[in-house]
Design a protein around this nucleic acid. Structure first.
Lengths: 194, 194
DNA sequence: GGGTTCATGTAATCGGTTACATGATTCG
DNA sequence: CGAATCATGTAACCGATTACATGAACCC
């Protein structure tokens, strides 16, 4: 009962503005995509289910050439369900990182090989981090906020990602240090920035 | 191809010591459970699949009263697969926290109600954190390590959880501060520790 | 007598991913 | 001419969760 996140995310988007499945997908990619992805199939399936449960209703707008736009909007029951979900308590997410699994069983992997795994992991985390900072620095995203509170909420969601990246990057650096070998002593390019 | 984590975790455990599905489940709960859980059904299913793929083999030990113990051990091919997986590069896990979803849509939730959600979230994170520190402080867990390197690996896996908790706790505290209200101004008990 | 441990499994369901299928329009 | 955009969907599969089923032995 406390799960069904996708379903409620859809309700959340439709509460802001009624739209089609197609545009819902764009919304996911563009706004919450970094921490909650959803595929086409998932969205259409869920919309059908929501309709059958009476939480959304559809207005079909025929078009020439293209398939008809099916514009979904919340019903009273849907809006109520959203409100309930939002105020419901929730536990922390469970950490589920395959890297940790490797780590635990890595005792016989040659240190250099495992350091390579960690190095790549770290690099990708840094790329993610850069994306979060870029987003936080882009004022056009927040311009759409309809209240200071909403703006704060959006900022916080990105800062969550940032902190998470920072924590993992710090951990990885520590892990590499403690598991050595000193990574490629013939460092030519630039000294790794802390 | 780079996924199949459960499968490889099982190979990892069987590499340490051949054993039954039942005890595998205990191992999961007792050691990697905090970042990778697995259910009975999953384990038995995967063992059957692994057997059919020739990565493990079974020695059936009949018992009186109880169902026969089926002791699984790695084959050469299984050991090779484990080795390959361990050295394979891996990307960062994706952050997927339902709380962030709520956050993004929470603009109309009464601040006090939403603060309650965050407060509870924070409390559970702190409980998790306490568990990690407890484990790190328990020397008996690490006594089983067969080399200093293995010990370091195990420590690191727990420290990962710790850092993760710290990051999220810090974020939550910040979020509550910025979303107000000043939580229950009639603070009777103790001043909230920073 | 009732709960826990040991030990095996099956079935149903759910949430998510990948791939397939169609078809007009618009832009480079 | 080909790719991207708009717009709908289906089917197959995978990994994980929950519930169901059996049954002896041991401990309180």
């Amino acid at each position: 009962m406390s799960t069904m996140s996708l379903r409620h995310a859809i309700l959340g988007f439709l509460d802001l503005e009624p739209t089609t499945g197609y545009t819902l997908q764009q919304r996911f990619e563009g706004s919450v995509g970094s921490f909650w992805s959803a595929t086409q199939s998932q969205i259409y399936r869920e919309l059908h289910a929501l309709e059958q449960d009476g939480q959304v209703w559809v207005q079909v707008v025929p078009q020439e050439g293209k398939p008809a736009r099916k514009v979904y909007a919340l019903t009273a029951s849907g809006r109520a369900a959203l409100g309930r979900w939002l105020a419901e308590p929730i536990g922390p997410p469970q950490l589920r990182d395959p890297l940790l699994l490797k780590l635990v069983f890595a005792k016989d992997v040659p240190p250099a090989a495992f350091d390579a795994v960690l190095a790549r992991y770290q690099a990708e985390l840094e790329a993610m981090r850069a994306e979060y900072t870029a987003r936080l620095g882009a004022p056009e995203i927040f311009a759409l906020a309809r209240s200071p509170r909403e703006r704060t909420l959006w900022e916080l969601s990105l800062e969550n990602g940032l902190r998470w990246c920072d924590a993992l990057i710090g951990w990885t650096a520590d892990a590499r240090r403690r598991l050595g070998p000193a990574p490629k002593p013939r460092a030519r390019r630039r000294p790794t920035r802390a």
